[in-house]
């Protein structure tokens, strides 16, 4: 397997008027071509900052990002980002269709652009909404437009920042499966930031668990589930249940070490705790969605 992305000892410190703030500190990991890596970490730990440095939008104050073997300076070719702030990421003066076509102007002819955008909108279940303006859509639909735009671009590396945070559960499952399908068909390398533990295990070939701010990697867990996943059977698999408990424990390492130790031998309690954590996460996601 060739290495697509390599992050070595990456650190970033924001210089703000109120003082310096270290968002990420000493992150190292690599992602192979065609792999889907999920990054989980508590809110505000620096996940978005990580994606910004990988995509070359901000220059890290420390360490290196290497893509296809080249050091990243500025935004590389063949890279797309689905931003966390999806509603601001869409252009209000362009129709949904034109928003999806927006990044294709540089490379494709009009007719091809049209077709590509229509196909992507169809994939995310918005084939009828092409003529509408973004403000006429719900938050979840806007998020799907942002996803469609990234898919239509057909990047080699796709970075997604909490891409399914504000869609309803049913659509979320559908979009998760769509992402897996697109990844398989186009051999896209994907890095998904999320704070939903279940999602990270369901989607990922690997799960990177980050500490709370400033972020560094606590664990790099391989997900030994079959490549083709299923919303029901996969989530029932023993490996899945164990992994999500493990991720939950790791996420909580900083907070409560005692519980972690005890929980290792107490599977039943872990499941309950995970459920609580999931609920809390959902709630937080909801709150953030409202705050947007």
């Amino acid at each position: 397997m060739t290495t697509m992305l390599e992050v070595a000892d990456l650190g970033h410190t924001y210089q703000a008027k109120s003082g310096a703030h270290t968002a990420i500190d000493g992150l190292s990991f690599r992602v192979d071509a065609g792999e889907l890596v999920c990054v989980v970490g508590p809110s505000g730990c620096g996940k978005s900052t990580l994606l910004r440095t990988i995509s070359g939008l901000i220059r890290p104050t420390r360490g290196d990002v290497t893509l296809h073997g080249d050091a990243v300076r500025g935004v590389p070719e063949d890279l797309a980002v689905v931003f966390q702030d999806y509603s601001r990421s869409l252009f209000p003066w362009l129709s949904v269709q034109r928003n999806v076509e927006f990044p294709l102007k540089r490379t494709l002819k009009r007719a091809e652009r049209r077709a590509r955008a229509a196909e992507a909108l169809d994939q995310v279940g918005l084939s009828g909404a092409g003529g509408k303006y973004p403000w006429q859509l719900s938050g979840g639909m806007q998020q799907r437009v942002a996803i469609a735009r990234a898919l239509a671009y057909r990047p080699a590396l796709l970075l997604m920042d909490e891409p399914f945070a504000s869609v309803d559960a049913q659509t979320r499952f559908e979009l998760e499966d769509l992402l897996l399908k697109v990844k398989r068909e186009h051999d896209t390398t994907v890095v998904v930031v999320t704070h939903d533990i279940d999602e990270s295990v369901y989607l990922g070939d690997r799960v990177l668990v980050l500490t709370k701010s400033p972020a560094s990697v606590v664990a790099d867990l391989p997900v030994n589930l079959p490549a083709v996943r299923d919303q029901i059977t996969t989530r029932e698999a023993e490996e899945f249940v164990e992994l999500r408990a493990e991720v939950a424990r790791l996420l909580n390492v900083g907070k409560t070490e005692a519980i972690t130790a005890k929980r290792r031998s107490d599977e039943a309690q872990a499941a309950k705790w995970v459920a609580a954590e999931r609920a809390a996460n959902r709630e937080r996601a909801d709150r953030e969605a409202v705050a947007d």
């Binding site: 070719e77 797309a80 980002v81 601001r88 252009f91 927006f102 990044p103 102007k105 540089r106």
Partner: peptide, 21 residues
Amino acid sequence: DRTKVETSAVFRVPRTQWIFG
């Protein structure tokens, strides 16, 4: 806003598209 600047940067839109689009 920042997100639109970054979106345009990520998709490497040409200068004319950035200004007029």
